[in-house]
Design a binder for these strands. Sequence first.
DNA 1: ATACATCGTTCCGCACCGTAACGATTAGAG
DNA 2: CTCTAATCGTTACGGTGCGGAACGATGTAT
Lengths: 165, 165
Amino acid sequence: MTDGPSGADEPSCVQPGAGIGFLISQLGYVISTRFRAILAPLGLEPRHFLVLRHIARAEGSSQQALGQALHIPASRMVGLVDTLEQRGLVERRANPRDRRARALHLTEEGRRMLEEAWRIALGHERAVTAGLTGEERDQLFSLLRRLAFARELVPGVHPALADEE
Amino acid sequence: MTDGPSGADEPSCVQPGAGIGFLISQLGYVISTRFRAILAPLGLEPRHFLVLRHIARAEGSSQQALGQALHIPASRMVGLVDTLEQRGLVERRANPRDRRARALHLTEEGRRMLEEAWRIALGHERAVTAGLTGEERDQLFSLLRRLAFARELVPGVHPALADEE
DNA sequence: ATACATCGTTCCGCACCGTAACGATTAGAG
DNA sequence: CTCTAATCGTTACGGTGCGGAACGATGTAT
């Protein structure tokens, strides 16, 4: 009894510890860890990358809106934007429409940093599937997308940043 | 410029936020979160399951050996085994060969619990790939295993329990 | 016999996260 | 216009989990 409950005649891919679920969980962890590592030299973490990216897409957003889109609680956004502002990547401008809110904008430096981070992310994406042919990569991508769709995952929003629902 | 650096003519599957890497990272998170949730009614967490499983495979192991195999620091093993012992699932027996070490054994209750957890894990594995045909599941499994192999992942050992290196 | 390594344990500081308050500002009701 | 409720950003606080460092007990080597 070293590999499961006694008389289990399951297909080999359905085995806790070696099955698809565990495999994806393992891979997901090492991949995101690796991404964090190759992003570190820029002084950025994955969440910073996501925030920068979202600001670039919707310049002038409030912190609230940003937090809502990325499922990040407001209290956390503060420190996040603080960091990015201190590094001169993001500006908190006044919003003439609503003096409570801050309009977030990328600085020139921020734009450069985002492009650099993007280049690194692209290299990372390629590294992930190194060893797969183009056709295999497409297959894998298609299969994973179906799993993600079945779980209603939102592209670009990492669920680790927003547990509750 | 809402979707990447200006002139990037990359294949669509290579896009941070929507690429294979991010997809696996997303899926890995929700899958392990889900697994934690369906295991909770037993009063167990995923790590407890892994520990129980390993003890079953190598009854009489020391905590040290167990921690080394699963890449869990010794100081954490204590609390882990404490919990399992308090629930009557594991026994710390004396080791006549070495009075420093504790020989870990499953109780009858522990064995029952492990089987139950295993059943739940199997159901989870099936749920993960629900919506895929058998052939697709095999394809996916094969592709993921190649990625895992390329990254030297050890079956049954989740890297989240061992960051360093 | 002495010095060093190993096992399990406890202790402590670190980092992180989310809730609950708070002042400032805005929107809505009367 | 006034008063009240909601919203935005911020700060403070408590809870949690993790791993390194030290410790006593025991084993091993010289």
